[in-house]
Write a protein that binds this DNA or RNA. Structure first.
Lengths: 207, 207
DNA sequence: ACCTGAACACCGTTCAAGT
DNA sequence: ACCTGAACACCGTTCAAGT
C-alpha cells in the first residue's frame, strides 16, 4: 500500500543519516554542546544509543557531519570578483554568522577541524580571492588561514562568554540574553589581518 | 622527632596543591590531555580520586592551575623597550615555546582561558609594548588579542597534527616523531599581524 | 537494512566517616 | 587538615541477536 519511502502505520519508522544530524542540531540549538551526547540524540530519535552506530562509526564523525551542516550556508565569493578588502571581510562575516546560528557552533567546528574531519571553512574562497588579486601565493595562504583561525577563535570566545552569562543568569533566575550583541573587536581584528596582507603584498608584488 | 614539613616513616605522606599540579603535568607530558583524568592523577599520587576534591573544588580549576604553571615561564618584555616588531615577535615566540613544552598545552590553556579561569597570557606585555610605541589604544588592544589568539590557535593546530601523527605511527608500530618541526606559517602569521598593526598605526597616529 | 538488549570499561562528583 | 569508602548519575562503544 504505502509507496516506498513512506512509513505505513505498521512498519516502525526508520532513520537516515540526515535525521540523526537533524536531531543533533536540535539538541545543540536548545541544550548546547555539553548535552549533545549519543544517549540524548538517541532519545530524541526514539531509539537506543547503539542504533546510532549503524549510521556513524563513532561520535566524532557524527559531530563532523553536524559541523558540515552548520557551515553549509557559508557564502561563497560573489561574482564579479570584489576588491580584496571588501571580499575578504564579507567572507569572514558570513562565516561568523554561520557559527553564531547555533549554540557552541564555533567550538564544535573548531574541534572537528582540529581532528582533521572537515575542511577549513571559507579558506578556499579566501585563497582564490587573494590569488585573483595577484597576491604572492605564500602570503595568500598565510592570510587565508590566519583570517579563518581568527574568526573561529574569536567566535568561540564570544559564544563561551554567552554560555557563562547563561549559567550566571539561570542561577539568579534572570532571563538569558537572547541575541548576540555585535560586541567588540571582530571587525577590528578582521580589518587588521586584511590590511596587513594587503600592505605586505604591496611591499612584495608578484612578478 | 621529625621537624614540621618533613614526613616521618610512620605518618602517611600528605599532598599539597603543588604536588597535585606536578602529578598532572607528568601525566600531561607522557600521556596527553585525554588521559588527564581525576582518577589517573589520584593514582599517580597514591590516593583516592575523592581526595583531590579537598585540594581543588573541581577538575576545571585543577586544570586552570596546570595551565598557569605551563605559562609561568612565558617571558616578559625585556628592558629597554625593544622596537614593536621585534618585541611583539619575541613575546609571541616565547608564548609558543611554553605551549609546545607539554603535549596538548595549547588546547589545555585555550580551554582554561575560554572558561575565564586564567588571564589571557602575554596580553598585558603586548599591550604595554604597543602603548609604549604610541599605538592608539583601541588598535593596541585589537592587535594584542589578535596576536595571542593566533598563537593559541596555531599551536593548538600544530599539536593536534602531532597527536594524529602519534596515533598513526603507533598503529603501525613506528617510532613517534619526537621533536616539533618549526613547520610552517607561524612566523608568517605573526609577521602579518604585527605588520598590519604597525601599518594601521602609521595611517592613524596618536595625537 | 536498521535496530534492540545487555554488557563493558570508563567518567566527574558528593559526602559521611575516619585519623 | 587530609584522606578513605562507597555510592550516584552519568559517559562512549561493542556485539550478538532480532526483524
Amino acid at each position: 500500500m504505502a509507496p516506498p519511502g513512506a512509513n505505513s502505520a505498521a512498519a516502525p519508522a526508520r532513520r537516515s543519516k540526515t535525521d540523526v544530524v537533524d536531531a543533533a542540531l536540535g539538541i545543540l540549538a536548545t541544550q548546547g554542546l555539553p548535552d549533545l551526547t549519543m544517549r540524548r540524540i538517541a532519545d530524541e530519535l526514539g531509539v537506543r544509543p547503539s542504533a546510532l552506530y549503524w549510521h556513524f562509526p563513532n561520535k566524532q564523525t557524527l559531530l563532523a557531519a553536524v559541523s558540515e551542516r552548520i557551515l553549509a550556508l557559508s557564502g561563497s565569493a560573489p561574482d564579479p570578483t570584489p576588491p580584496w578588502r571588501e571580499g575578504a571581510t564579507a567572507i569572514a562575516t558570513s562565516l561568523q554568522r554561520c557559527l553564531l546560528r547555533y549554540r557552541d557552533g564555533a567550538e564544535l567546528v573548531s574541534s572537528s577541524l582540529a581532528m582533521g574531519l572537515i575542511q577549513p571553512p571559507a579558506q578556499r574562497q579566501l585563497l582564490e580571492l587573494a590569488l585573483a588579486h595577484r597576491m604572492p601565493p605564500a602570503l595568500a595562504r598565510v592570510a587565508s588561514s590566519t583570517l579563518v583561525h581568527f574568526v573561529l577563535g574569536h567566535t568561540f570566545h564570544v559564544q563561551q562568554r554567552l554560555e557563562l552569562a547563561r549559567v550566571a543568569a539561570s542561577a539568579v533566575g534572570a532571563p538569558v540574553p537572547a541575541a548576540t550583541a555585535p560586541e567588540d573587536d571582530f571587525e577590528g581584528g578582521v580589518a587588521l589581518i586584511v590590511h596587513g596582507a594587503e600592505s605586505l603584498a604591496r611591499a612584495d608584488p608578484r612578478p
